[in-house]
């Protein structure tokens, strides 16, 4: 494998590092009373938002409809996800150093599966919070559930919820694309050399 491809592979692995600096996903809530907006940021290791207290404010709003309070402690994922990312970064760098095409392919496939699993897990959580409502809630709308959108926007009572991947997800996307490119390019190069 040519040296520049190995370097590219290392870059692909390292691009996963953006997950430690940026959230993976953002949920924006818009309502007339929140001109400044309310954003929930989902990181690989924590929950954050547009302000320090966004989770408390989400929970205050959600308790009227009987949604369970969101606590970072409820999500085991936030504890083990960073290790998975570190695992992928290390194996990716290793694949780059060793320069083995097949290793690169397995890495890309595994990463894509992990990414898809993450999204599926995310959807399951949204579904759980959106449907597991306290029957004694003050506000009950017959037949109404409050599953926030996975991607795109959805009207939930007075809120317009918008859900979008954030910079952290771009890191995963780049890792998969660059890794895949390394795999494809290295085939052509070996053919000619």
């Amino acid at each position: 494998m040519r040296i520049y491809l190995r370097i590219l592979m290392v870059i692909a692995a390292l691009s996963l590092g953006t997950l430690f600096f940026f959230p993976m996903w953002k949920i924006y809530l818009e309502a007339p009373q929140y001109p400044e907006g309310l954003e929930l940021h989902i990181w690989i290791n924590k929950l954050g938002g547009s302000s320090d207290h966004v989770l408390q404010n989400f929970n205050i709003l959600n308790h009227y409809i009987g949604m369970e309070a969101i606590h970072p402690d409820s999500f085991a994922e936030l504890k083990y996800m960073p290790y998975i990312v570190i695992f992928f970064m290390m194996t990716g760098v290793l694949a780059g150093i060793l320069g083995k095409r097949n290793l690169v392919l397995y890495w890309v496939i595994l990463l894509a599966i992990a990414g898809a699993a993450g999204i599926a897990d995310f959807y399951l959580w949204l579904h759980k919070f959106g449907t597991n409502l306290d029957p004694t809630a003050p506000i009950k709308v017959p037949g109404m559930t409050y599953i926030p959108p996975l991607l795109g926007h959805k009207a939930l009572l007075n809120f317009n919820a918008l859900s979008l991947p954030a910079w952290g997800s771009l890191g995963i996307f780049l890792a998969i694309v660059i890794g895949g490119l390394v795999y494809l390019l290295s085939r052509r190069k070996t053919y000619f050399t």
Binding site: G49, L55, H63
Partner: peptide, 11 residues
């Protein structure tokens, strides 16, 4: 019977 709704949640 139930504990009161969330009030001390924080990041």
């Amino acid at each position: 019977k139930k504990p009161v709704p969330p009030a001390q949640a924080s990041v």
